[in-house]
Amino acid sequence: MKTKSNIERLLEKGEFVVTSECGPPRGSDAEAVRKKGNLLKGVVDGVNVTDNQTSVVRMSSLSSCIILKEMGFDPIWQLVCRDRNRIAIQSDILGAAALGINNLLCLSGDHQSFGDNPKAKNVYDIDSIQLIYTAKTLRDEGKFLGGDEVKGAPMLFIGAAENPFADPFEIRALRLGKKVKAGAEFIQTQCIYNVEKFSKWMEEVRERGLHEKCAILAGVTPLKSAGMAKYMKKNVPGMDVPDSLIERLSAVPKENQAEEGIKICVEMIQQLKEIEGVRGVHIMAIEWEEKVAEIVKAAGLSPRPSA
């Protein structure tokens, strides 16, 4: 155990870890962050705080992390390469560590063309794997990318995301290996709807021995309706929603589809839990945080071990 991270500690103890996510508000109201936080209090082991997700401007990820930290959470700070060069990235990592942030999730970031500022210039000075490498170099070598010595290394538990369903499929496990090699200690996956394909990916992951080198937290997102399922299948790149799921939701009357979606999510978690190498789940209930407690409970993952 290197850091003060709650999830690192639990993973080391062999606990099945549960994380969730909290998207910062589109304004400066700290209360909005606390409100979401309250819905997750005592429900999960760690909360991801997204960094201007889908390139839509929101309250800074790090600031939101601090608000949650003050509430007693151990936030997982998401950091994207889209908006910062290596100078800002290294500086922010030091700052986050100084403020008591223990977990860093390294991401490339959605392209700005999807957000509310499509005219923005993107940075991409470094990519997500180089970001992992940067965080690890700062922490373990005590060195900046430029080679100078860091006075007070930032002790962050380093994670990354992976989409097992994006193309080209044959590079996915190899690329995960690269992330692990660069220094990723935990992986949160893109939301899984196709368990069969995910299992195939996990097989490859195990073949490469990667499940022993990093903790894989399987991502899930409850579906609110058949419409949402169809939308995600059609419009979200790299999202694999099997028709059988859409059919199952469509077969239920509209007013009961949300309930069915929760049921599917719970079943999914139970299936994923049985796959060798899956060390936890990451529940992304997008603007539906109030359901996380119910899902965790129904999946038999409640109560969470104390922090």
Binding site: G109, D110, Y124, S128, E162, A166, P168, K178, P237
Partner: peptide, 11 residues
């Protein structure tokens, strides 16, 4: 995104 270590999730 000028990624140098493989495709992003949007491929």
């Amino acid at each position: 995104k000028s990624l140098m270590n493989g495709p992003c999730g949007g491929s």
